[in-house]
Amino acid sequence: MDALYIGIDVSRDRLDVAATSPSVAAFHLPRNHDGLADLVERLKPLGAERIAVEATGGFETVVVAALAAALLPVVVVNPAQVRAFAWALGKRAKTDPIDAAVIARFAEATRPDLRPLADAETEALADLVTRRRQIVAMIGAENQRLKRASARTAKSIRRLLKALEKELTGIDQDIDDSIRRSPNWLEKVELLKSVPGIGDQIARTLIAELPELGTLDRRQIAALVGLAPWTRQSGQWRGKSFIGGGRAAVRSALYMGALLAARYNPELKAFRDRLVDQGKPKLVAIIAVARKLVTILNALIRDNQPWHELKA
């Protein structure tokens, strides 16, 4: 028999489920406690090769946790890749049942690897890191508004900025407390910070949002965060390679780390300068530094050695 692949489209209130086999009828359930329990019971006896759930801004987290707890082979797939796959199939319509079927076919075509999922503590830390990022973005937006605000509006903006800065301090304290309660996380933070250019916020983002760090090879970890270059060529034509996909928040953190490392890390500065001397655009050189940086950090966690010991 052909392997069975299941696709689940997750929305705020509903789960739509489809399979690659016509013998398994599509169905939908509410996204609540009873619906998740029913989902597990219905999927367990099917013996699916993979159960693919599309990342939907956090709605998928409880679904993935329920399936993983039942030891079902669940994977989270990138919605941009699924949508591109749908267009390739000629699926222009977009409804939840159609999306579930496309997700199932995407899983069948790509056969994504199963990876260990973050535990509850890591998920909680990731939520705090995400919230911190949102508050920082709000502070930036309000500061931009302040530059062109009238005197009366400026007073309101300053009050809001004061509240946001207080909230940011509280979030930072919560993140610090979480890290200190976990000796394993604390050790990883120190290992990552041993690399010049990596500070507290970048290290914490990597721990919270890239739990696979240290468990994959250098190509896999670069691809996971969207730093692996995609080659474009056809016949004699050669297009520029580009990056994309992956985890945008992690990629942004690594980009900031690369900017700092290209200034303060002697090896990575020399690497960046060599690329620029070869005629590479500065942005391309920094992205290459970010890719090299994540492979270094991956090796630090894998080998449990700080930067200077690894270099020695």
Results as ranks from 00 to 15, higher is better:
1 M>S: 14
2 D>T: 13
2 D>L: 10
4 L>E: 10
6 I>D: 02
11 S>R: 01
16 D>C: 05
18 A>W: 07
19 A>V: 08
23 S>P: 00
27 F>A: 07
27 F>S: 03
30 P>V: 04
31 R>M: 05
32 N>H: 13
35 G>A: 05
36 L>W: 09
38 D>V: 10
38 D>N: 09
38 D>F: 03
41 E>N: 12
45 P>L: 03
46 L>D: 01
46 L>S: 02
49 E>C: 07
50 R>W: 09
51 I>S: 04
51 I>Q: 03
57 G>F: 10
58 G>L: 12
59 F>L: 13
60 E>N: 06
67 L>G: 02
70 A>G: 01
70 A>I: 05
73 P>H: 09
73 P>E: 06
74 V>H: 02
77 V>Y: 08
81 Q>R: 15
92 R>F: 13
95 T>W: 08
95 T>R: 03
96 D>G: 05
97 P>G: 03
101 A>G: 10
101 A>S: 13
104 A>K: 02
105 R>T: 03
120 A>G: 01
121 E>Q: 15
122 T>L: 07
123 E>T: 13
124 A>D: 11
125 L>Q: 05
126 A>C: 07
129 V>W: 09
132 R>D: 01
135 I>D: 00
139 I>Y: 12
142 E>I: 04
150 S>P: 00
150 S>K: 05
156 S>N: 10
158 R>K: 14
163 A>S: 15
176 D>P: 00
179 I>N: 00
186 L>N: 13
187 E>F: 12
189 V>N: 01
192 L>M: 06
201 Q>I: 12
202 I>S: 02
203 A>T: 04
203 A>P: 00
205 T>H: 04
208 A>Y: 11
211 P>W: 13
215 T>S: 15
216 L>S: 07
226 G>V: 07
229 P>S: 03
229 P>F: 08
230 W>F: 14
235 G>E: 06
236 Q>F: 06
236 Q>N: 12
243 I>E: 01
247 R>T: 05
249 A>C: 02
250 V>R: 01
251 R>M: 03
251 R>F: 10
253 A>Q: 03
254 L>H: 04
254 L>M: 11
255 Y>H: 14
258 A>Q: 09
262 A>C: 02
263 R>K: 12
265 N>C: 07
270 A>W: 06
280 K>I: 04
281 P>H: 10
282 K>R: 14
284 V>N: 08
289 V>Y: 06
290 A>R: 01
291 R>T: 08
304 N>R: 15
309 E>G: 00
310 L>H: 13
311 K>W: 08
